[in-house]
Design a protein around this nucleic acid. Structure first.
Lengths: 206, 206
DNA sequence: AGCTTAACCAAACAATCGCTTGCCTAACGC
DNA sequence: GCGTTAGGCAAGCGATTGTTTGGTTAAGCT
């Protein structure tokens, strides 16, 4: 009697949706919804009931796929990092093997991933290690691993500046797009070009 | 069993602390603790019990000073903005009236406020409007008002770049100090100088 | 056809949250 | 001294949270 019409189906209307097959794994749909909610509302404001009801599922069923809310976040996090790196490699494909163009391409890939509506990458920016103390170490490790690979892009420039400072500034500026970007604005490539241009060309007017 | 040996003093040990005078207003102590917790843990992970027990007070007593948790955050927010602006004006005092030095001084003031251990300004960076939907409008208004005044610093440069983009990049980079800054690192003035230098001097090596 | 089991639901659990209520006490103005 | 009241405590309220438990259904192999 899951779909009773006389009695109440209190949380979810299950009239729609594709037919359930055996291993039509809804864990992915769960992660998709979780990514959007984690990215837009943060970890704490997002409840398991929010995530499950977004795909027409009851809250308890989530625990068939993920052992806990924290583990669900970790799965979103991993997929998010996978997608940023994939986006960067895609942008690097048709790029000449020179330091500045490579940096610009990497920034393009990073920004494109952060602005992607799938929201997986956005979760990495939105959910900080301090938000989930129980996962603080694991989240920090993943963030560090990702940021560490940026050293090669910065280091290759051989510029007369502190590479660590330049790295954090570039990444934080790139992540800020998530805050102010609106539909129909400049493309990720244009934004990345603007950033690189800021560094290469002197702004001095006098 | 925090202190009690015979009977229970379940939450707080009240053996210490200065003598209570009539209007020795503990609302300020409450705000001080709230600022630290909001900034380090975020809004949702911080409970009224966390804040009150940090200063040896019971949770209910908070509502004598603040009507709600949200109103408490708003008070921290207002004080935070007051302190950033005050910090900027202090840095501008002995600065020549020229665009680039003024921008550098403003950045110095902003960074110094964000790194201040009082954590009031840090709360502005840590707590986003989307974290507290009921206060979204009020928080956004305060953020916008603050960011808006940065237009004069950027606009005065008369540089050949999109001033809006330059503004968000500079502010997000300055705010990022909160994430990576560790005790004994470069001074706010040095960090600000580094940022301005990135813009003024070309990094091109070839 | 029969059995297994992936996948889900219904219902409740204990814990914690923001917040309210009623009471107490001591500092202050008169 | 005396009444007022700022300031705080003790205790609990209702709502919501992450999570558990036991049952139900149908897909898929044999």
């Amino acid at each position: 009697m899951t779909a009773g019409n006389g009695a109440a189906s209190p949380e979810v209307d299950d009239t729609a949706g594709p037919a359930r097959t055996r291993s039509n794994n809804r864990a992915i749909a769960l992660l998709d919804a979780a990514a959007v909610l984690f990215a837009s509302q943060g970890y704490h404001r997002t409840t398991i009931r929010d995530v499950t009801s977004a795909i027409g599922m009851r809250s308890g069923s989530s625990y068939y796929h993920f052992a806990s809310k924290a583990e669900m976040l970790l799965a979103v996090y991993d997929e998010g990092i996978r997608r940023v790196q994939q986006s960067i490699e895609a942008a690097l494909l048709d790029t000449p093997d020179e330091p500045w163009p490579r940096l610009e391409a990497a920034l393009t890939g990073h920004i494109a991933a952060v602005l992607d509506p799938s929201a997986y990458a956005r979760t990495i920016v939105a959910v900080l290690p301090s938000d989930v103390p129980e996962l603080s170490d694991e989240i920090t490790a993943r963030r560090d691993a990702y940021e560490h690979q940026w050293r090669r892009f910065i280091g290759a420039l051989d510029a007369p500046v502190d590479p660590a400072l330049l790295r954090v500034f570039l990444l934080s500026a790139a992540n800020s797009t998530q805050t102010w970007y609106r539909e129909g604005g400049a493309s990720p490539a244009a934004i990345a070009h603007f950033m690189v241009d800021l560094l290469r060309r002197p702004l001095e007017t006098t």
